[in-house]
């Protein structure tokens, strides 16, 4: 047995004689005695030890074979995927005027028509082939709740369809939260609404400056009121977009949520991310340039780990660090625009050259359009961070280079953050899996 290629090892100062070991392909975390680590290097493990460490992704029979298998991991994952995930841009209308809105010139009074909704339902039914058992729709906008009637119609139909097939159906919303009143949520829950991701950018003052209503009025109070009204009906996730100026105000939001009784038991997840740069060709009315161009930027590293700590130390849930292929790579994942155009990434909807089909004609080959094999090169396959990165974000590569020819390498980001994030997970998650082997 040999050490896996996809492994990070850190010193363990609070437990002398041990190493903190993280498998990037298994997302397993272990404290490994240095003696055992030496045994791996000296090929002196017992059969029991080999079995145990193999299950954690720490050792493999052959590193070359592991690398070869990794190059096909997405194919195997796609072959075993029993789900179908469709993100639906149900409209491009919005009642907010966010300072950084990346939809910029794409925004407007554009709504999915009844006819397109019918085509969407037909498309989903056709794609939900034998062997599928989970249908997940994510409604985006614009602001999706400006089309709540159409969401109900689409979901009602698909819920009946999956029920007849003995499969599961659920949908989620990515919403600004201002229209998610209790009566709206009650109605949508009946057709499968399971979760809503609501964006709040810091404390009231900061949020209202970044995400006002179109009228200019603050939206913070309305959102908090709606979360309080609906958090017993729907899994509420709180998201937020920070920049180098605003991120320090985000802990005030967490304090406020706690004070208002929106405690970790009532909020399913909290996750904050940096505002990303838009492509240069975008014309936007917003005069805003505090975006991030890469997760490798030092201020993003600092802000990201700081906010993760603030979230976790208050007991709120935030995503674990785990393998995460881009949804572009998932063959049963599509993004459908309000006009029926089909894409592979929500950030690239409406951009010339990235449409891979439409609801009437189906999906064409998109291998080259999205450069699916971007990460299948020696540098990426040899990188211990590959399972967490898979070549990074193609949207960010496109924004920086105007193409997806080069990867969006996240090595500097993980070099700077991974150890901290693993230690946060160890410290704050009350792991039920702690055991000695």
């Amino acid at each position: 047995m040999q050490l896996s290629r996809y492994l990070k090892t850190y010193p363990c100062e609070d437990k002398p004689g041990y190493l903190l070991v993280y498998s990037t392909k298994k997302a397993s975390v272990s404290l490994l005695p240095e003696r055992v680590y030496s045994s791996i290097e000296n090929h002196a493990l017992s059969p029991d030890e080999e079995a145990s460490l193999s299950g954690l992704g720490i050792v493999v029979p052959d590193r070359k074979e592991e690398r070869r298998q990794m190059s096909h991991i997405i194919d195997r994952l796609n072959a075993r995927n029993q789900g179908l995930t469709i993100s639906v841009i149900i409209n491009m209308a919005c009642n907010f005027n966010c300072v950084y809105c990346y939809e910029g010139s794409l925004k407007g009074s554009h709504y999915m028509s009844e006819r397109t909704a019918g085509l969407l339902i037909d498309f989903v039914k056709k794609r939900f082939t034998e062997g599928k058992n989970l249908l997940q729709l994510d409604f985006y906008g614009g602001e999706p709740l400006m089309s709540s009637g159409l969401i109900s119609e689409i979901s009602g139909s698909l819920r009946s369809f999956t029920s007849e097939r003995g499969a599961s159906y659920a949908f989620s919303l990515v919403t600004n939260g201002s229209l998610l009143k209790r009566n709206v949520a009650e109605k949508l829950v009946q057709t499968g609404l399971a979760s809503a991701r609501i964006t709040i950018d810091g404390d009231a003052e900061t949020h209202n400056r970044y995400r006002p209503f179109k009228t200019g009025a603050g939206s913070f109070d309305a959102i908090i009121r709606n979360i309080r009204e609906t958090c017993d009906l729907v899994r509420i996730g709180v998201g937020g977009n920070f920049d180098r100026i605003s991120y320090e105000r985000f802990p005030l939001l967490l304090d406020y949520l706690e004070k208002e009784g929106l405690t970790p038991g009532k909020i399913a997840e909290v996750r904050f991310g940096p505002v990303s740069k838009r492509p240069d060709e975008d014309r936007s009315p917003a005069d805003y340039n505090e975006w991030s161009l890469s997760v490798n930027e030092p201020w993003v590293v600092k802000a990201g780990t700081f906010l993760r700590e603030e979230i976790m130390r208050r007991g709120y849930n935030t995503p674990k660090i785990r393998p995460m292929p881009c949804q572009i790579e998932i063959s049963d994942s599509f993004v459908v625009n309000y006009d029926g155009g089909i894409y592979k990434c929500p950030a690239l909807v409406g951009r010339d050259g990235f449409e891979v089909g439409n609801l009437s004609d189906g999906v064409a080959d998109y291998q080259n359009v999205y450069n699916l094999d971007l990460w299948k090169n020696d540098e990426c396959l040899d990188c211990e961070y590959l399972p967490l990165c898979f070549g990074g974000c193609r949207y960010m590569a496109y924004v920086r280079d105007g193409s997806m020819n080069r990867s969006d390498c996240k090595r500097p980001h993980f070099d700077a953050t991974l150890e901290t994030m693993i230690r946060q997970d160890v410290k704050y998650r009350k792991s039920s899996s702690i055991r000695k082997d």
Binding site: L53, L56, G83, C345, A347, M396
Partner: peptide
């Protein structure tokens, strides 16, 4: 052997279900 398992991890091939965008570029902008 003295290994302390803090998290058993996941099977990568089972994780294709509903996905969140890794960088949330698209997800959190609305």
């Amino acid at each position: 052997m003295g290994v302390v398992i803090l998290d058993c991890g996941i099977d990568m091939e089972e994780m294709a279900g509903p996905l969140a965008c890794c960088f949330s570029v698209a997800v959190t902008f609305r």
